[in-house]
């Protein structure tokens, strides 16, 4: 079955994107990539140390994964744009996950500043994936501004609380023609599967893998969950019924006609 996820020029088999923050050891990252079968890995430029190879995250990524720099630390459009440009020059990747956060307590994204950054960077030829609070109008503006996918949060970053924004994400899936990728908040493989069953195009997971006791095994679990969820979505699950079929139906008399 041909079920590729198309973003920019890329055609992806894996629908799990992986974040690289919070790992206790960068050496785990190649193993996590292998176990999860991910093809897109996001890296914060702020953490990339170009001077020391052992500290340079990019050294741990093989050439067959897409490196998606993110603009972690950006507080406004201007900073996000600067970070994206530096990251592209340094890494050669034209993908960027825009993260504009001017709230350090909940780490909630600033949709307004993000939309402006999408517009500038898309015009400069970036494949732009904006991280956002799930809001339909903001998502539409991001589409118009040239985004390649929309990345709504499931719950605040690092909380592992799951798909708290479920209803709002459903609206985005229904109304936005670009891939919807849930980013942040997914704490368990079952929640990743649920997002995929709902019709999300992919999910991005970081904290739940990085802070597991066995990150590599958890990465594998997420890879499988995302695959299962996608298959379930494609296969069209049967409808659920709230009640058992009534034995004395109220409209049974109509059949006698």
């Amino acid at each position: 079955m041909d079920d590729k996820l198309k973003i920019g020029d890329a055609q992806l088999d894996s629908r799990l994107f992986v974040g690289t923050g919070k790992f206790a050891d960068y050496k785990l990252i190649p193993e996590v990539i292998k176990a999860s079968k991910t093809q897109v890995v996001t890296v914060a430029l702020r953490r990339v140390d170009f001077d020391i190879p052992a500290e340079n995250m990019l050294e741990y990524l093989s050439s067959d994964v897409i490196m998606m720099p993110n603009t972690s630390g950006a507080r406004n459009t201007e900073e996000a744009v600067k970070i994206a440009r530096i990251a592209r020059a340094a890494s050669g990747s034209n993908w960027v996950k825009i993260e504009v956060i001017s709230d350090q307590k909940y780490l909630l994204p600033d949709n307004f500043e993000t939309i402006k950054a999408v517009e500038i960077l898309a015009k400069e030829g970036f494949v732009v994936l904006p991280y956002m609070s799930p809001d339909l109008m903001a998502a539409k503006h991001m589409v118009d501004a040239g985004a390649a996918a929309i990345m709504p949060l499931g719950a605040p970053i690092g909380t592992n609380r799951g798909l708290k924004t479920r209803e709002l994400v459903k609206v985005l899936i229904a109304e936005i023609d670009l891939p919807i990728i849930v980013d942040a908040g997914i704490g368990r493989p079952s929640e990743a599967a649920e997002a995929m069953e709902m019709g999300c195009a992919a999910v991005l997971v970081n904290t739940a893998i990085a802070t597991a006791d066995d990150p590599v095994l958890m990465a594998e679990a997420f890879g499988q969950a995302v695959e299962s969820g996608r298959k379930a979505f494609l296969s069209g699950p049967g409808a659920t019924a709230e009640l058992a079929k009534a034995s004395s139906p109220l409209t049974g008399f109509l059949r006698n006609e």
Binding site: R46, R47, V48, I52, E55, G73, E79, I83, I86
Partner: peptide, 16 residues
């Protein structure tokens, strides 16, 4: 720090 299972971070900001 590494021996305690933690990552020593040397860089967490990029001068803009």
């Amino acid at each position: 720090i590494a021996g305690h299972g933690y990552k020593p971070i040397l860089k967490d900001w990029h001068d803009l």
